[in-house]
Nucleic acid binder design. Structure first.
Length: 433
RNA sequence: GUGGCCGUAGCUCAUCAGGUAGAGCACCGGAUUGUGGCUCCGGAGGUGGCGGGUUCGAGACCCGUCGGCCACCCCA
């Protein structure tokens, strides 16, 4: 087709699916405000420099996945590939960091990757960031907060928490050397990708999917043995807090994160129900980032969840989302005079009974075809204006759903127009707040 | 960037040793002059992703290209 299509990896979210999105967004935002987090709305576009500095120059995201372009001033701008950098930038710029600060944001992110299940080029995240608290009770807070979200969504049985500590950056550097040394001696046993990572990002070899590589890692030095004392203590404390709160988790010693700014605690919520992209939510501590971006040293923890993946998981887990209200009434009006009457009358009804969902028939259509549409719409009643009604100043209310009513009587009543509101109030007594 | 599978009506799919396409659903109309759901009848809708090649003839075979899905990589 030569028609214009959506850009690859940038998907439309259709009315069929938006109820799931809304349910997800509403649930998350409700939980977040109950923990005192405030929403912040951030630009989709930031200076390219911001992402290079925060995410790390040699990460895949920065090297090959960013949508970057020069604006008319010649400044290099980038569609945000993740949210933390922009949030930190805003927090610094707007002077939000004098006191502990709890923030969240939602919106699209952009990464130039090959689309697959649970991964597109424009995807949506909800990010949560807590600034100014160095102690692991804050790590515990955001983990427990995320767990609460899964519970409210009915997803507890679909996800599992993985936890690790990657320590301070100096501890990590020491470990990196040890790991590289160990692996270099066995380089020919490594898969091709891992050989490459040996030079670019050796820690990522730890979560390689290659079984041979994983076997090789069994004998490798362990990250845990290289942790600095503070990281070790904080991690122990975090586990204590989670245990006390009854939060289950598994320590995954090979869990590392792709972005450079993380330190100490890292965690992921994973599922086995989404194919290859099993991470549904991930985050960790990033104590150095604020300072690195020009702010006063400020510890921070945060995470982001992938909305597309969570929506998939809701569908996969057959988690019912609250049904929409549906159509209450469908207005059938035949002829110009009737249409004029109906339009005005229904506007008056909306003034009084604003919560009713009323579908007005528009366009042409015989009596019969209009009723057919009324039925298809799922409306409970049809409001009918025909010649007779117009002539007598009346309107017919016809029941379309109530089977019992239709057995004993025609299932419809014709009332004076000024009784329409009262009749509707009675008919929808069960649905009116 | 790499690999596998796929690309026929709005949707889900079929057909075929290669002889210029069909079903179900949806849509429109009729069977009832003002009454839907069920049923019946009829209708509209496809340059078979696009381009090239083989052939008397291709949606079916070959090549290319674009697109989709899944996986690798990477990540939420």
């Amino acid at each position: 087709m030569s028609n214009i299509r959506a850009v690859r990896g940038m998907n439309d979210i259709l009315p069929d699916e938006t109820p799931h999105w809304q349910h997800l967004e509403q649930t998350v935002s409700r939980v977040l405000s109950s923990y005192g987090y405030g929403e912040i709305r951030l630009p989709l576009v930031e200076s390219t420099r911001l992402f290079k500095r925060s995410i790390g120059e040699v990460t895949d995201i920065v090297e090959k996945e960013m949508y970057s372009f020069d604006d008319r001033n010649g400044d290099s701008l980038t569609l945000r590939p993740e949210g933390t950098a922009g949030c930190v930038r805003a927090a610094i710029q707007q002077g939000l960091l004098g006191v502990p600060q709890r923030l969240w944001y939602a919106g699209p992110m952009f990464r130039y990757e090959r689309p697959q299940k649970g991964r597109q080029r424009q995807f949506h995240q909800i990010g949560v960031e807590a600034f100014g608290v160095p102690t692991p009770d804050m790590d515990a807070e955001i983990i427990l907060l995320s767990a609460r979200i899964w519970r409210q969504l009915g997803l507890v049985d679909s996800v599992a928490l993985q936890l690790n500590s990657i320590g301070s950056s100096s501890a990590r550097q020491a470990y990196r050397s040890a790991l590289v040394e160990y692996l270099q001696q066995r380089e020919d046993a490594l898969d091709e990708d891992s050989q490459r990572r040996l030079h670019s990002n050796p820690l990522r070899i730890l979560d390689s999917k290659n079984p041979q590589t994983q076997a090789l890692l069994d004998g490798a030095p362990a990250l845990a043995d290289f942790l600095d004392e503070e990281s070790r203590d904080d991690f122990a404390r975090l586990r204590e807090l989670l245990d006390a709160a009854g939060q289950r988790y598994v320590v995954n010693a090979r869990l590392v994160r792709g972005l450079d700014y993380y330190n100490k605690t890292v965690f992921e919520w994973v599922t086995d129900r989404l194919g290859a992209q099993g991470t549904v939510c991930a985050g960790g501590r990033y104590d150095g980032l604020v300072e690195q971006l020009g702010g006063k040293p400020t510890p921070a923890v945060g995470f982001a969840m992938g909305m597309e993946r969570l929506v998939l998981l809701l569908l996969e887990s057959a988690q019912a989302v609250p049904a929409g209200r549906g159509v209450d009434a469908y207005v059938v009006a035949v002829g110009e005079a009737a249409q004029r009457e109906a339009l005005a009358a229904v506007e008056a009804v909306r003034d009084k009974l604003g919560e009713l969902v009323i579908l007005q028939h528009t366009g042409a259509g015989s009596f019969k075809s209009q009723l057919k549409k009324a039925d298809k719409s799922g409306a409970r009643v049809a409001l009918i204006w025909g010649e007779d009604e117009v002539a007598n100043g009346k309107v017919t209310i016809k029941q379309l759903r109530d089977q019992a009513a239709q057995v004993d009587n025609p299932g419809q009543q014709t009332v004076p127009r000024e009784h329409l509101e009262a009749t509707l109030v009675a008919a929808f007594a069960d649905r009116m707040g």
